[in-house]
Design a protein around this nucleic acid. Structure first.
Lengths: 350, 350
DNA sequence: CTGTTAGCGCCTTCAA
DNA sequence: TTGAAGGCGCTAACAG
């Protein structure tokens, strides 16, 4: 019995159907409609269909605020990031949004200044204000010990993307070490023996795995690693330029450079071009991540493809599964792929 | 009269104060607390202070869902985009977030498939579900007539970023035509006379202004535009390659190419490199937008800087001003800037 | 399998 | 300038 005739709620814009209206149209109670929409058990198939049809007719959309208030949960997931690269984050966002929409969850974004002093507190503020039902951490936040510790204390659920190790948490992870080693094997097969590496930032979990994979690759080929060929970087274009300078200025420079990510690799390409070094004829370069830029430079970049969108989608999915209690959630391992493009080639004759 | 003692709501984590608790602590009614928090008039200064003190003591944070439900507003702003470029969107997002946080508004994202059939309906769903108090449209959505028409009908407030024309709406806009003309003047001053243009996508408002600026630049220098020098593009890397091929294959190829955005310009650089054409010695290239990629290619790209972050911030600010009714909101014109880098140089001797 | 009842925490209306 | 009552649209807990 709608005690508030629809007309009274119209305000020039289209009238909004409520759960009550759907219930009336389908000849069931509000609760049954609620069950259908929340995929709860204990609804006869026939009833479900009737409700769904009525909802469609009335263009019913559950009101998020009311749901949150009554259900004591926000139906909100927060993505925390510290901008490693905008295109990476945008890809992750797309994946997360896909999962969120399927499960009728909303997404909020939270840029976090990892380096900054009050960064954990800023997350606490977010939690206090929006009460997200869960958080998704992207690198380097996935390995932020202080943050994770506090989230545990606050009893806030979270999923991680590309955390350093599979801590029994939930989210997605990729075997970066094996990927880097595979890529090394490929380049070594092209005849390269002196291969330089520009590392990632120290605070970033990826750094260690990529470096380890670099060393694995060399050792597996029986090549003794030369510490001089490993230079510090920080996942940035600028550090790629600096690293390339350092490596190329050596008396016995490498014939190939493994940059810890694509931005860094672009810096290497830049420096090579500035020196008139032909890539890949005189120098091979390869990166990691397969961000769009790797296809938009010349020569296009050989790199490791991470399925970032998929990783975002799966991480969100696992998180929501955990929140809703629909079965157990896991740390899902996703596959990588070598993208062989034009920046790598046979080692130059000596 | 808390009929539900605080303890019963605790669930391992900190207890949450309600407006009722604050009212009791301050010795006033709920409504008075509400007035203080919403900055409504009719509260004595002394009372306000008492309430604020009580709120601080109890660490009171208004419950967003309850506010939204009762107040029929969501304190939410939605950003609609169709991914022209991830880095562009991320910059806009950062600006929007800044403004939102200042005004205690939340942000939701909505990727929209502009080309797709049901795209307007997908926005309606968003509106029905989350009831955002306002929308922010980025290009090419800012010029989506069907969408804008529907929003008007639904009486949904929105701000536009870089709309084709200043329709008396609110948001931010930049004089792309003048910017393009200025850039042309710069290149013409370098001695170029035959300058090609690869346009943007037809559905995108920026296309027309940039093309107009290109023609303005030529005419102001007394150069008769050659229609063959204008080729169709679509703001993508691939269309830059295709456009460059078309232009460079001409009998009398241009000595400079104006690409309608940076991605397109990268395609031109790619094609030039593939042909062994030296940039800028043999060919000058320039783009538009100043996305990060323009600094990460070699040679770095001469382009027009749009203050995307600022545009996001201001658009959100204007929108929120309109929502809250705190004074009039406007269409704010922001300045552009020429970024002269290494992809442009003197015209080659004939 | 389905329905009823009683709020979730806040704002709106109207009275004081 | 302040307060009391009622309801926003939905779900939880319990009953059938």
């Amino acid at each position: 019995m709608a005690c508030h005739p629809l007309q009274s709620r119209a305000r020039g814009d289209a009238v909004r159907a409520r759960i009550e209206d759907v219930a009336a149209a389908a000849g069931v109670s509000m609760k049954t409609v609620s069950r259908v929409f929340n995929r709860e058990p204990n609804v006869r198939e026939e009833t479900r269909l009737r409700v769904e049809e009525a909802a469609r007719q009335l263009k019913y959309r559950p009101n998020t605020s009311a749901r949150s208030l009554a259900g004591r949960r926000s139906y909100l997931v927060s993505l925390l990031y510290d901008n490693p690269s905008p295109s990476y984050i945008m890809e992750v966002i797309e994946g997360v949004l896909t999962a969120c929409e399927q499960s009728h969850y909303g997404l909020t974004l939270r840029p976090v200044d990892f380096g900054q002093r009050g960064h954990v507190e800023s997350v606490e503020t977010l939690v206090a204000q929006y009460r997200p039902d869960g958080l998704i951490l992207t690198p380097p936040l996935s390995d932020d010990a202080a943050l994770v510790k506090r989230l545990r204390e606050l009893n806030v659920r979270y999923a991680t993307i590309s955390a350093k190790r599979d801590n029994g948490g939930i989210g997605t992870i990729l075997d970066e070490r094996a990927a880097a080693a595979d890529m090394m094997a490929h380049v070594i097969a092209l005849g390269h023996r002196r291969i330089g590496h520009i590392t990632g930032h120290r605070s970033h979990g990826g750094r260690a795995w990529r470096l380890a994979g670099y060393l694995d690759g060399l050792r597996q080929a029986g090549i003794e690693p030369d510490p001089d060929l490993v230079v510090e970087g920080e996942f940035s274009f600028e550090s790629g330029i600096a690293g390339a300078r350092q490596l190329l200025d050596m008396d016995d420079p490498p014939t190939a450079i493994f940059a810890a990510n694509d931005d860094t690799a672009c810096g290497v390409l830049y420096e090579a071009a500035a020196r008139g070094l032909a890539v890949p004829a005189q120098l091979s370069v390869f990166g990691f991540d397969d961000t769009p830029i790797s296809r938009q430079v010349w020569p296009s970049l050989t790199t490791v493809r991470q399925p970032s969108r998929e990783m975002g989608r799966i991480a969100a999915q696992q998180l929501i599964t955990a929140i809703d209690g629909h079965g157990p959630a896991h740390m899902v391992r996703v596959p990588y792929q070598l993208q062989l493009r034009h920046s790598t080639g046979p080692a130059p004759a000596r």
